[in-house]
Write a protein that binds this DNA or RNA. Structure first.
Lengths: 354, 354
DNA sequence: TGCCATCTTGACAACGTTTTCATTGGATCG
DNA sequence: CGATCCAATGAAAACGTTGTCAAGATGGCA
């Protein structure tokens, strides 16, 4: 029964074909020395003729690592932001002979479950971009680190919940995104255009709104400029779908029209918010300015082209993949890298009309 | 040296902790019968306490399959079309306890190389959406099938190059997309609106343009309506990036303004083409109608909302994943499924003005 | 009481590698 | 010419499972 499955050519078969021992074939495959040219050639021919490919599983089993797979945890690849990161990670991984296991943590799934799976698959490294991490998830990270499997995470600077992983700071790679500063710059820009009543379309829950660094940056700038923060201009709990922005905008408009600018949690939301404003006959940017976050590819083709805060996505993915691969090769002190967020002014924002 | 890596808890350790043999633990783990309640409890406790997780690699090594991984070959996850498919595949896979290895075949990479990697990783199944398949790739597919690893592929109906894999038709799952009919419907719609000079922004090469089913459908409808196909309204070789549509539109406009409608290879191109038209002060749909393909999420939020041909993406991904998983469970006759393409009329198309 | 059937358990080979150790044979050197 | 060394090779253990087989224990039945 065990033999019913057709299997790949094995070292043993090559050995038999070439009339040598398994060890010798292994030596040839791995390019070790101490093999005579004559034998090497014979073995190489057999390998070619029988189309031998080393069994990665067996290799990894004996070495306890080297599956040549890395896990990538994103919130949702259908979201262009994560898609771009995923592309970059896959790209670097591929170039270094690694495969990427894709994990979509949205759909209300437990990060821990995914990490468990990755541990079971004995991945050589794990990259995480999905932000929030439940306590069980953190436990899994600890287990990974105990087993000396490198972990890299990208997160927002100043998030209070980062504290849950503070004790890991020295052991994991960190890619820190400065949404806080980005948000301040963006808000300052809007304020400089004369906007005073700025609405916020927010993806997460209200309780997150209270502690979100980008919101803190927003409020801070308002305060500094003597502007009042208005609770009623905030729509929370919208989620991350493209439609979330439209829903949020409708909700906002149903409450009030007393605002001259809107900040969306990200470009995806901003884009659909733009559509709603248009349908409602509200001119952007003449009547309302719209600001996004992330600067996804699509946002330069919206109407009007979207003003937004650029967040480096490819760089993020590349950094994470490179970090993992270098750590896999040789464990080094962990690295913390911070990427800035920059304002990209396009045409969805303008001076407030009197 | 072999023991330097920290390893996961093993069956043996559980066995020792529970004072039973490895076989018994294995029986408990796999829920087999013939284990006394007392022993079962003892073992289960040890498993919990030592946080045992079965080593997938070892399992797969002995069974020659059951890595519980499937490979997904897409052209580019950063493209929303593929991202949506990938999400659906990952979703179904996850629900069935499978992990997804993501392979991005764009960037001029050889499909065969990816397939080789997947073979080496001994995936339990392979889903392919990246269309074109080089001869070496086909060879890899054959090798997969020989080893009884299910393969499912999604492709366009009537593509001539499908012939290269005709001999596999009975052995692989096929998800066939009817761009041909979709294109006919779309073109008929434009013609019915009075359009006679219809431009085409085409991603692939000119030689592909000659044999592409959707182009054939386009030409067929033109001919049927006594309209002439104009070579000079076709821009080829644009690629699949979001910017491709803008580039194509600029190229087209630099040649002529004598057209009243544009069909783009897909929505991504259509969206950036819209932006260029806007910049050039050309009204859509009053002066020029724009038609896309695929109906990605973004296209309902463009300005104006994009008329397009809906292609089922989630269904595609779900079908592929489900097919693979059912075939992994028990090999059955392969399935061919055809999904229709449907016209979605929004506001980027209108009756041609006199 | 004795025998057979059934339930419970353990020993062991196998999966395809890598790696350590042992063996061979020829070359080198005094 | 004998001792020594090293290159070339092979044998075998180990990685963590699964599955087969055999053995021991238990209970039912005649």
């Amino acid at each position: 029964m065990l033999l019913e499955v057709k299997r790949l050519t094995t070292l043993r078969e090559i050995a038999r074909a070439a009339g040598v021992s398994v060890s010798t074939v292994s030596r040839v495959v791995n390019g070790y020395e101490h093999v005579s040219d004559e034998v090497r050639l014979r073995v190489e021919r057999a390998i070619r003729e029988l189309n031998y490919q080393p069994n990665q599983l067996a290799r990894a089993l004996v070495s306890g690592k080297n599956t040549r797979q890395i896990g990538l945890l994103v919130y949702d690849v259908a979201n262009p932001y994560f898609a771009e990161i995923a592309t970059a990670v896959e790209n670097v991984a591929y170039q270094n002979g690694y495969s990427v296991i894709l994990c979509n943590s949205s759909e209300g799934r437990n990060t821990a479950v995914y990490l468990q799976t990755l541990i079971r698959h004995q991945v050589d490294g794990v990259a995480i971009t999905s932000g929030e991490m439940d306590p069980e998830g953190v436990e899994c990270l600890e287990r990974l680190l105990q087993r000396d499997i490198p972990v890299v995470i990208s997160r927002e600077r100043y998030w209070a919940s980062n504290a849950a992983m503070d004790h890991l700071n020295g052991s994991i790679g960190v890619m820190e995104l400065d949404y806080y500063t980005g948000s301040k710059i963006a808000t300052e820009y809007l304020v400089s255009l004369g906007h005073e009543r700025i609405a916020y379309l927010y993806s997460l829950s209200g309780s997150n709104f209270e502690i979100d660094p980008r919101v803190l940056g927003f409020k801070e700038v308002l305060a500094k400029n003597g502007l009042q923060f208005s609770e009623d201009l905030v729509v929370c709990n919208l989620g991350f779908h493209q439609s979330s922005g439209a829903r949020g905008m409708l909700e906002l408009l149903s409450r009030t029209q007393d605002f001259t600018a809107v900040i969306a949690y990200n470009d995806l939301l901003a884009i659909s918010a733009l559509a709603v404003l248009r349908e409602e006959g509200i001119q952007v940017p003449e009547q309302v300015s719209v600001m996004g976050f992330d600067n996804i590819a699509a946002s330069q083709y919206t109407y009007p082209p979207l003003t937004t805060v650029h967040v480096p996505k490819s760089e993020q993915g590349e950094f994470m993949a490179r970090y993992l691969i270098s750590q896999i090769k040789e464990r080094q002190p962990s690295v913390q890298r911070r990427l800035p967020a920059e304002l990209v002014v396009r045409q969805s924002t303008a001076v407030r009309k009197a």
